[in-house]
Design a protein around this nucleic acid. Structure first.
Lengths: 113, 113
DNA sequence: TTGACATATTCCTATATGGGAATATATTGT
DNA sequence: ACAATATATTCCCATATAGGAATATGTCAA
């Protein structure tokens, strides 16, 4: 079995760095495809293809205005990823505390000497 | 150009659902490969291969004890993904507020009638 | 209608995959 | 040394890329 399609869910879609750039760029305002091309320095067909993937998983919304297609990030679709990674928050805080505690213990040791 | 390797970074490694399951399972305690196989109901070679990918991007740590390899999630490696998704938090909160405000405005309208 | 502009799609190719099956490697106990 | 156990690796294959080049589609303006 090959890898799951990039358009199968947000996790797969977002694995591609260019698509993360696009999502970031489109977070504040809607933008026409040409603006993305100019601002991010990617080829136009490439941008269109990435946008298609992002559309298919609901990570961006489109609106047509004349010849222009205005895309904008749908932040809500990123939320499940945020929730998933959040599950591990307490674990890395734990890890950091252990590192800190060990450092402090070492400092006390040195103090005694 | 094909897709970036699954072992190129955490984003790509975590795109695979089975690997997310494994990370979740290994978050609390270290576990031997056999335990993962039994608990998650995957084939042993499959688990070993997934663990290899996770190791290569630093998402898990290993410790050998006799014939057993004890794996555990390195939560710290998930943090960058959490930070990236966090950038969008204010945007989805914004979206939710707009939905809420519209609902309240509608409620006021109905109240007048 | 025709031309110019904006975006999308198609075709091509090298490459990486995940699963299954089989096998290799490592470690322990006897 | 040998058998048993635990894990890792290899080989095979169908499939999905992402980029580049070329082309198609859609929309406006004159």
């Amino acid at each position: 079995m090959p890898r799951a399609a990039t358009s199968s869910d947000a996790f797969n879609a977002v694995a591609e760095p260019r698509r993360r750039e696009i999502l970031h760029y489109l977070a504040n305002d809607e933008r026409a495809v040409g603006d993305i091309v100019a601002s991010l320095g990617m080829e136009q067909p490439s941008v269109s293809k990435h946008l298609k993937v992002l559309r298919e998983v609901g990570l961006v919304r489109v609106r047509r205005n004349g010849r222009h297609m205005f895309y904008r990030t749908n932040a809500e679709a990123i939320r499940p990823m945020h929730e998933w990674t959040k599950m591990f928050e307490r674990f890395w805080q734990h890890q950091l505390n252990r590192v800190k505690e060990r450092a402090e213990a070492k400092a006390r040791e040195l103090d005694k000497a």
